Simulated assay, not measured.
Amino acid sequence: MALPQRAPKPEKPKREKRDGRFKSQKHRDWVRKEFACVMCGSTVGREFAHVRIGSHAGIARKPDDLRGVVLCAADHKRQHDIGEETFWAEYERRHGQTVWQLIDSLCAASPVAHEIRQWRIEHENG
């Protein structure tokens, strides 16, 4: 017995992609490969870690790549386990600078520093 022809499935509207996110594999690779873990100094199992505080990124939405640092796998896990505010407050106590000062220094020294500056002019300042 043959089945009748299937009705076409209605197309689901596609969600709009978040416009304007700064993405740079070159910046992520440079941060991860060039530096030791910013918390403990380990050079083993380094990972690029996004800083979500103030980024307006939610679940399954990464912040801009310029908001990233290098952490070892253990500290990256800890960053998420204890919460970003607690983790980065500990970083500030240990190292005498905020995570924002660290990020600004990384962005200024990045091989794509010009692209980062341009993106910030276009997106952060209106």
Rank of each mutant, 00 (worst) to 15 (best):
E11K: 15
P10S: 02
W100C: 01
E11H: 08
R78L: 14
E124T: 07
L66V: 01
T43K: 15
K12Y: 09
P13V: 15
I121W: 06
R21K: 12
K9C: 04
E124S: 08
A49W: 03
S55N: 00
T43H: 12
M39G: 02
D19P: 02
E47N: 12
C40W: 08
A109T: 14
A89W: 03
L71A: 14
A108W: 12
V112N: 12
D29G: 00
H95M: 09
C37D: 00
W88I: 08
Q101L: 05
L71P: 14
V99K: 09
H56I: 04
D75V: 07
A108F: 09
Q25D: 03
P13M: 10
A89Y: 02
E11C: 07
H56P: 00
S105N: 07
F22E: 01
D75H: 15
W88L: 08
D75T: 01
K26T: 11
Y91V: 01
R18W: 05
V69P: 05
E115K: 15
V44E: 14
V70R: 01
K9R: 11
T43F: 13
K9Q: 11
Q25Y: 03
K14L: 15
S55G: 02
A108P: 00
K33I: 01
T86Y: 10
R78G: 02
T43W: 11
M1G: 11
K17M: 11
H56A: 11
G83W: 11
Q101F: 02
E34I: 02
G54L: 07
W119R: 03
R120P: 00
V44G: 01
V112E: 13
G68L: 13
D104Q: 09
D104R: 12
G126L: 13
V31W: 01
G54A: 04
H27P: 03
I103A: 06
R46S: 02
D104A: 15
P13Y: 09
Y91C: 06
R18H: 09
H95Y: 14
I59V: 10
P13A: 14
R120E: 15
H123N: 07
I116W: 00
D29R: 04
R15Q: 12
F48S: 04
V44H: 05
C107T: 12
P111I: 15
R67A: 05
K23P: 07
G45D: 05
F87A: 06
C40A: 07
R117G: 10
A2R: 04
E122L: 05
L71T: 04
L71M: 15
L3A: 11
I116D: 00
S42P: 13
K17P: 09
Q79R: 10
A60Y: 11
E92D: 05
D75N: 15
I59D: 11
D64G: 05
K23S: 09
I82R: 14
D81K: 13
K77H: 14
C37M: 07
I121M: 11
K12R: 13
R32D: 04
R21S: 08
T98R: 07
F87I: 08
K23Q: 14
